[in-house]
């Protein structure tokens, strides 16, 4: 149903690091759930429109009027690694 390789691929897409045991377990559990889910494959849905929203709304917009921003101190308050003026991260591509 869903194999090791697929589990690893999806985990990388989702930025999750799985242990070997988790990979095995995930493959089995996801396969079980997908087995159930795949029953929707039996339905004839060709002419059915998809619903992403049950609320029938359109054009909900906001006037272009500035609202107060956070102070920098406040913005950085919860940062695991605040570096003076910003949020520090390892550079992409480094390592």
């Amino acid at each position: 149903m869903i194999d090791r390789e697929q589990v690893l691929h999806v985990a990388r897409l989702a930025r999750l690091e799985l242990t070997e045991a988790e990979v095995e377990r995930m493959a089995a559990e996801l396969s079980g759930v997908l087995d159930h889910i795949e029953r929707i494959g039996e339905l004839d849905l060709d002419r059915v429109e998809p619903t992403s929203h049950v609320v029938a709304l359109e054009n909900v917009l906001r006037a272009d009027e500035p609202a107060p921003s956070l102070s920098r101190e406040r913005a950085l308050a919860g940062a695991p690694d605040a570096a003076g003026a910003g949020f520090r991260v390892p550079s992409p591509g480094a390592s």
Binding site: V7, L16, E17, L18, S91, G93, S95
Partner: peptide, 27 residues
Amino acid sequence: DLLSLYERTRSEGFGVEVKRRIMLGTY
């Protein structure tokens, strides 16, 4: 490195069920 920042943070921070659903949804 950045990849490990993402992967370790999320692997340590999320519980089993959350990871399962993220995997299911991503798939």
